[in-house]
């Protein structure tokens, strides 16, 4: 994999009058990488994106693209392009005019513009839509055109600010796949802001999880899911059970279970377990006992809530296996994998 750093952010800080903002943002994004900024609303992800795009100026820090500082440039001079949250096509221009505008400003020849617009419309699967006005397009089509408009500028970094959040779930999935295809085909560098963890997990090369203005963790979707660095990431990404445990020496004890204390924690700890890492045991003496609180069938699988001495846990089971379980019955469970966090964090 190519290791050129396309975009680097260092020591970025921006504080608003309200006291909110971002601090200590350090991030390096490689060429051809799709990075997601993920976090709850108000975590500062959009602030970071808008700072890269030039719509906000930071209090301190540096943003470089291809090792050139871009902070002194206004948005119109930056080698970035942005796809905004709401449909952002200019209502008084046709699709063709919307797409051609940026190229015209760059003094591209008329025939070249025509050719490029045709090409990019094919790329976003809207060939022949040149003459339509934005209001004649559906939401998905509008957002495709918005992506096309940004792509036409051949930006060094493409910024996307929750571009699909206004679309319905099915369309969102389609757009995600399409975007990923376009990104891979053009080896484009993208920064994608979202609050939807599923979206981030599905399209990103790496995810930057943010919380109250800070970066919590930067890792591949796989690592974020398997080894959340902090309790916040563990809570935010995927489904997770949290059990009470004690760290003693190099062991972490949860009732009768003992796990390796990798982080060298002490005292009371919170132990995070993915539902898929909990197994039902049929041996009466093994594992931990519990009582079934609820069985919810969710399509091809069932979600079982079990009350245990260490806390409430959720377990996913194939529907067939869940059929024999009923509320109130006693079961025994085993845990295959855990991550532990000190309770103060």
């Amino acid at each position: 994999m190519e290791q050129t750093i396309q975009l680097s952010i260092s020591g970025l800080q921006k504080t608003y009058k309200s006291g909110e903002g971002v601090r200590d943002i350090n991030l390096e994004i490689r060429k051809g990488e799709l990075i997601s900024l993920l976090g709850p609303s108000g975590c500062g992800k959009t602030t970071v994106l808008r700072t890269i795009g030039g719509f906000l100026s930071p209090d301190s820090g540096e943003v470089r693209i291809e090792n050139q500082s871009i902070l002194h440039l206004p948005p119109e001079k930056r080698p970035t392009a942005m796809v905004f949250q709401s449909y952002n096509l200019w209502p008084h221009m046709t699709v063709y005019e919307n797409l051609a505008f940026g190229l015209k400003l760059r003094k591209t020849s008329r025939s070249e513009i025509r050719q490029k617009v045709e090409q990019v419309l094919k790329l976003v699967r809207l060939p022949g839509m040149e003459k339509k006005y934005p209001s004649q397009l559906s939401g998905g089509q509008q957002q495709r055109v918005a992506v096309a408009r940004a792509l036409l500028l051949e930006p060094k970094v493409l910024l996307l600010d929750e571009p699909f959040s206004a679309l319905d779930a099915k369309l969102r999935m389609e757009m995600r796949e399409e975007l990923r295809e376009i990104q891979a085909a053009g080896n484009l560098t993208m920064v994608f802001v979202t609050h939807d963890q599923e979206e981030a997990l599905s399209i990103s090369d790496r995810i930057v999880v943010m919380n109250s203005g800070r970066i919590e963790q930067v890792a591949s979707p796989q690592d974020i899911y398997d080894q959340p660095n902090t309790l916040f990431v563990a809570q935010f990404i995927g489904r997770m059970n949290f059990l009470r445990g004690q760290a003693v020496g190099d062991r972490i004890n949860v009732q009768s279970f003992g796990f390796h204390n990798e982080k060298g924690l002490r005292g009371e700890v919170t132990v995070a377990v993915r539902p898929e890492d909990i197994v039902m045991l049929h041996d009466e003496s093994a594992g931990m006992g519990g009582t079934i609180r609820q069985v919810m069938v969710l399509g091809h699988y069932a979600e079982i809530s079990i009350e245990t001495p260490a806390g409430l846990t959720k377990v996913f089971l194939p529907r067939e296996e869940a059929r024999s379980l009923s509320t109130g019955s006693a079961v025994r469970i085993g845990i295959t994998r855990v991550t532990a966090y000190s309770q103060s964090s």
Binding site: G53, E76, F84, R106, A146, L153
Partner: peptide, 8 residues
């Protein structure tokens, strides 16, 4: 902002 973004 989008207009400025494309270079206006």
């Amino acid at each position: 902002e989008s207009a400025r973004d494309v270079g206006a």
